[in-house]
């Protein structure tokens, strides 16, 4: 099967003053082209390290991180990133913030074309009319939308989202989940979503990877069974409840609070 993202047997340790601190130990994740993979796990288990590996900002000690079957050795412009902190540049307007990647990634677009591209993205996420505002004039949810546009403006193949909705209130978050689905329909990408929110993971992704506690390995992979846009009501079905229960149980195992059961639910794939 053709996987766009292929992470296998990745091990990594940070060098600290008290010796190496292993964060990843046997990480395997595969995401097909156009897929959306959510990664959940206990706090501090190395999820953010994972995003840096995919983005090429770091190299693993062992194992391989491949995009299109090519080893990732350095940053590449086919990746877009958004973080929990929207990190918008306060001295730029929203429009210029979204344009930023186009100033760095080699491209032949004129200034007018860049603006047009940024404007169309902004209107897609409902930020029409805010192009000339400063980030400080926008609410948290709006800033996060702008950050999403910036991550997508150069049409990346891979979109890495590191808890992008973590700091938002529940309703704004649900708003953004819906927008995420709309965006993915119009701007196809292969997504990796780091999150702490299990509902978010099954609502957005088509595959949920549960990482064990540090050092993290792939502990469990859940096939959500749906891909593409879905309704919020989907979260309140018996099927969704069952998946959430499985994930909750897996997280408890990862946290060391529950023993792996022999009768583990059989939804796991691979």
């Amino acid at each position: 099967m053709n996987h766009l993202i292929d992470i296998s047997g990745v091990r990594h340790a940070y060098k600290t003053e008290s010796g190496p601190l292993p964060v990843l130990d046997g990480l395997d994740i595969s995401v097909p082209e156009g897929g959306f993979c959510a990664v959940v796990g206990p706090s501090g288990c190395g999820k953010s390290t994972l995003t840096k590996l995919i983005a090429g900002l770091m190299r693993p000690d062992a194992g391989s991180v491949k995009l299109h079957r090519t080893e990732v050795t350095s940053p590449r412009s086919t990746v877009g990133m958004a973080f929990q902190n929207p990190v918008l540049l306060e001295w730029r307007t929203i429009l210029d913030n979204v344009i930023l990647p186009l100033e760095i990634v080699p491209n032949k677009l004129t200034r007018a074309q860049r603006e047009e591209r940024a404007r169309s993205l902004l209107s897609m996420v409902g930020l029409e009319g805010f192009e000339e505002k400063r980030p400080s004039e926008l609410s948290g949810g709006m800033r996060q939308r702008a950050s999403l546009c910036r991550a997508l403006v150069h049409k990346p193949e891979v979109l890495i989202l590191d808890e992008p909705f973590g700091a938002l209130d529940a309703f704004t978050r649900e708003d953004l989940w819906q927008i995420m689905h709309q965006v993915k329909e119009r701007e196809p990408f292969t997504g990796v979503l780091i999150t702490h929110d299990l509902r978010e993971s099954i609502f957005l992704a088509d595959q949920v990877v549960v990482l064990s506690g540090r050092p993290a390995r792939t502990q469990y992979v859940l096939d959500v069974g749906t891909s593409g846009p879905r309704d919020l009501d989907h979260l309140y079905t018996a099927e969704a409840s069952e998946m959430l229960a499985i994930l909750r149980h897996q997280i408890e195992i990862a946290q060391g609070r529950a023993e792996p059961q022999a009768s583990a639910p059989a939804r796991a794939v691979q």
Binding site: L57, S74, P75, F83, N85, V87, E103, I104, R150, H154
Partner: peptide
Amino acid sequence: EPEYRDILRSLGASQTTIFRK
């Protein structure tokens, strides 16, 4: 904040570009 750097570095920006922008 390291995220500011990461945003630009992940796009392949040079240190000079990161400083300037």
